[in-house]
Simulated assay, not measured.
Amino acid sequence: MSTTEYQVTGMTCGHCETAIRAEVSEISGVTGIEVSATTGCLTVTTDNSLDDTAVIAAVDEAGYTAVRS
């Protein structure tokens, strides 16, 4: 199991968190997602190695910007 954190810009509310959670949950191997608009933090847990490109693209698809912390 692997956990990776990202800083996300543009989140302001629960709707933002939900949109990001929905997109990231579609990535193969993701087993857990924690996202907080208050802290701007996204934590992704996977059962294998995580492709940062896929996570960043999923956050982008939701309308936000992410960088690995």
Score class of each variant (00 low, 15 high):
L42R: 00
A57C: 12
E23Q: 12
D52G: 14
G29V: 03
V30F: 14
C16H: 04
L42E: 01
Q7S: 13
R21K: 15
G40T: 03
T3V: 14
L50N: 07
L50R: 04
I27M: 11
D51R: 10
A66W: 01
E34D: 15
A62T: 05
L42N: 00
T45H: 04
G32S: 11
A22Q: 14
I27T: 08
T65L: 03
V24Q: 00
Y64N: 02
A62F: 02
A62G: 04
A22V: 10
T45M: 01
D60C: 02
D47Y: 00
A54V: 07
V59P: 05
A66E: 02
G14D: 03
R68Y: 03
V8F: 08
I33Q: 05
A22N: 13
R21Q: 12
Y6K: 06
Q7I: 15
A22C: 07
G29Y: 06
I20T: 03
A62H: 03
G32T: 00
A62S: 05
A22F: 06
C13Q: 01
V8G: 05
V44F: 01
Y6P: 05
R68V: 09
I56C: 05
D60H: 08
Q7C: 09
T53K: 14
V55R: 06
V67T: 10
M11W: 06
T4M: 14
V59H: 05
D52L: 11
E5I: 15
A37D: 10
T65F: 01
D60G: 11
I56Y: 04
V55Q: 09
S69Q: 08
A54H: 07
I33L: 07
V8I: 15
A37K: 06
E34W: 02
E17S: 09
G14Q: 06
D52H: 12
T43Q: 04
T39D: 08
T43M: 03
D51C: 11
D60A: 14
T46C: 04
L42S: 02
D52R: 13
Q7M: 15
D51F: 08
G14W: 00
V67C: 00
T38N: 15
A58M: 08
N48Q: 11
Y64L: 02
I56V: 13
T12C: 04
G10R: 03
V67Q: 04
A19P: 13
T43F: 00
A57Y: 08
C41A: 12
G40K: 04
T31F: 06
S28P: 13
T4N: 14
H15K: 01
G29I: 06
D52F: 13
V30S: 12
S28F: 05
A58S: 13
D60R: 10
A66L: 03
